[in-house]
Design a protein around this nucleic acid. Structure first.
Length: 587
RNA sequence: UGGGGCGUCGUCAAGCGGUAAGACACAGGUCUUUGGAACCUGCAUUCGGAGGUUCGAAUCCUCCCGCCCCAGCCA
């Protein structure tokens, strides 16, 4: 792990004497600002951003948007840099478990902070010195009001606040008190350090905000060395400055904090004054994004953990089968702006399909098997059928798949009474088995009691090797299949959206997001049959099950007993037709 | 009834005084041994509303309407 103590992003002298543009384009309002700054030679042509997560939870797709923005901009500018900085100012909520997970996620997404891994806690000494400076300037004071009293004194949205009776404590007394706080002489809540700004400000953030509070909790990095911790507004602005950040990009809810951000930097003798720019956070339809809600899903057991494939967390998406490329493309497509929006998950799904279409090897898997006996095929004959691994990529080559007299096909691919436009298998109809032969259904065997179809009898046409039709007859349907004697049994987990409504965050009718959970967000199929080549598929690898969708091999897989997660289904135009037929009555 | 933001196609989103990009979705079609993919076509006479300025406005001005955020010793 790189040492971060001595190289905390010092502003390199003479780092850039002329603007460096790199590939940066003004695609969005933030890049437009950066471009303009570069042209004006602001910051000496230097561009430095940062991604500042608090290590109190797992990263989700919303963070990915921010990561792609911050690391993206830095990468697009010649000499641009993006730091990874943990905003670890609240030991009660934070944990090393999260810092490690976050680092892994950022790396997985494809970004590199090189040796610039920082922690706000690296700056605690410096931050403390800044606080002392503020006191000496009479711009900060130790307030001994209780938390409740402070709230009361703060006023409301429409009424100004009142000044704390401790507001005009002498400098020496403030200094002594702060020293005492730092030394652990007081209990939590006894005192806080506040900035002395304006209790009548219409911006509540400016009503003498707390900048240090006593917290006697062990910090995951500094241990018990400190018992006072700086608040976000103070720590963040100054950390940005210490690292020489030029553009401090954050989400909209911090817009009201910008005057405070600037206030600290304008008063203190700091290395530089970064520009804070706010953009709208990502909202995705049919999902929730707040850490609180995600945590609740995990704690209440509604999902199996942070990496449950239904979670919008990066670990969840990864396990589901999403690739870093697809997430980066998605981030690019959604754009960056300031208006609140709800992005359609379909766009995310499109992004994976697009990526996986090009790279996922194709394979045959029967999810809901029904037996097919080729009555005119020799009993013990086994053919090795050649199949293309990826029609989008001829370099992917071919493979052999065993074919024999008894096969499995998808139960859905047979209809005893086929609806209009159904060109799969039905009594008397012909259909092609992918890469193999054309078969015709000549008999249906049912369970006497339940009426369930247990077996289909078909004949195969030996002249149609490889699925060709030498006589030129056209066979519309092509089915995937698997040889019963050779297939491997597999578990397949079919995921669907976690929520039933586009915006589960909407509480206007008194319901909460938990009320909108989709009871069918996970369907586990245990009797699936896949090609023998998949017996020992490597966890994490990705496949396309032909005619079904994209699947990732789950870590729960065991030798000879693979488990697959459906990443996303293929577009299914038959499903659309069928739905339309049902909706429009007959035909 | 305080302050800060935002309102352009179903969903994102360009546009920055010269006459509405693109993507997803959707609808048709071509092709096809994945009803996949690919490809083609269609999809806002109109930019929250009303006035005004201008030869000309989504872009400028005025008023109005709607939505989001802020009263943690959270970030």
């Amino acid at each position: 792990m790189p040492d971060t103590k001595d190289n905390a992003g010092r502003i390199e002298e003479g780092a850039a004497l002329k603007p460096r543009f790199g590939s940066l384009q003004p695609k969005d309002f933030i890049r437009a600002i950066v471009c303009a700054d570069l042209e004006a030679n602001k910051n000496n042509g230097r561009v430095m951003t940062r991604f500042p997560p608090e290590p109190n939870g797992y990263l989700h797709i919303g963070h990915a948007k921010s990561i792609c923005l911050n690391f993206g901009i830095a990468a697009e500018v010649e000499g641009g840099k993006c730091n990874l900085r943990f905003d670890d100012t609240n030991p009660a909520k934070e944990d090393v478990e999260y810092v490690e997970a976050i680092k892994a996620d950022v790396r997985w997404l494809g970004f590199d902070w090189e040796n610039r891994l920082y922690y706000a806690s690296d700056y605690f000494d410096q931050l403390y010195r800044y606080a002392v400076e503020l006191i000496k300037m009479e711009k900060a004071y130790v307030c001994s009001l209780s938390a409740d009293e402070i709230r009361e004194y703060r006023g409301t949205l429409t009424e100004p606040g009142r000044e704390s009776p401790y507001r005009n404590r002498p400098i020496v007394e403030n200094l002594e008190l702060l020293e005492g706080m730092k030394a652990g002489k007081f209990e939590e809540g006894a005192h806080v350090l506040r900035a002395k700004i304006d209790m009548a400000s219409p911006n509540l953030n400016m009503r003498d905000p707390v900048i240090y509070r006593i917290r006697k909790a062990a910090h995951h990095r500094t241990g018990a060395r400190w018992c006072i911790y700086p608040m976000y507004d103070f720590a963040h602005a100054l950390s940005d400055s210490i690292e020489g950040i030029t553009h401090s990009i954050c989400t909209l809810e911090f817009e009201d904090h910008r005057p405070l951000y600037d206030w600290f930097l304008d008063r203190l003798n700091v290395p530089c004054h970064p520009q804070q720019i706010e953009f709208a956070r990502l909202n995705l339809s049919y999902t929730v994004m707040s850490k609180r809600k995600l945590l609740e899903l995990v704690k209440e057991g509604r999902v199996k953990g942070w990496d449950d494939p239904r979670m919008p967390t990066l670990v969840g998406l990864r396990r589901r089968g999403y690739t870093p490329e697809s997430i980066r493309n998605f981030s690019e497509r959604i754009g960056v702006a300031k208006r609140d929006s709800l992005v359609d998950v379909a766009l995310l799904e499109h992004s994976v399909r697009e990526d996986l279409n090009l790279r996922a090897p194709r394979v045959m898997a029967v999810l809901n098997p029904v037996r097919v006996v080729l009555v005119n095929y020799p009993e013990d004959r086994v053919e090795e059928i050649e199949a293309v691994n990826n029609p989008e990529d001829f370099n992917a080559g071919t493979r052999k798949v065993p074919f024999s007299r008894v096969l499995y096909i998808e139960r859905d691919d047979f209809r005893e009474h086929p609806p209009k436009k159904f060109f799969r298998l039905s009594p008397g109809s012909e259909v092609r088995l992918r890469y193999a032969y054309i078969i015709k259904c000549v008999g249906v065997v049912k369970d006497e009691k339940t009426g369930e179809i247990t077996e289909l009898h078909c004949t195969y046409d030996p002249s149609t090797t490889g699925g060709s039709t030498p006589d030129g007859r056209s066979v519309k349907g092509t089915l995937h299949w698997v040889s019963a004697a050779h297939a491997v049994e597999a578990e397949v987990r079919l995921y669907d959206r976690l929520f039933l409504v586009p915006d589960p965050n909407d509480e206007t009718d008194g319901r909460g997001f938990m009320d909108y959970l989709n009871p069918d967000s996970l369907k586990i199929l245990t009797a699936c049959r896949v090609e023998p080549g998949l017996a020992d598929a490597t966890p994490g690898s990705l496949y396309q099950f032909e005619r079904h969708g994209y699947f990732s091999v789950d870590p729960d897989s065991a030798q000879g007993k693979p488990v697959f997660n459906r990443t996303v289904g293929l577009r299914d135009s038959w499903a659309k037709i069928e739905k339309a037929q049902k909706a429009g009555g007959a035909v």
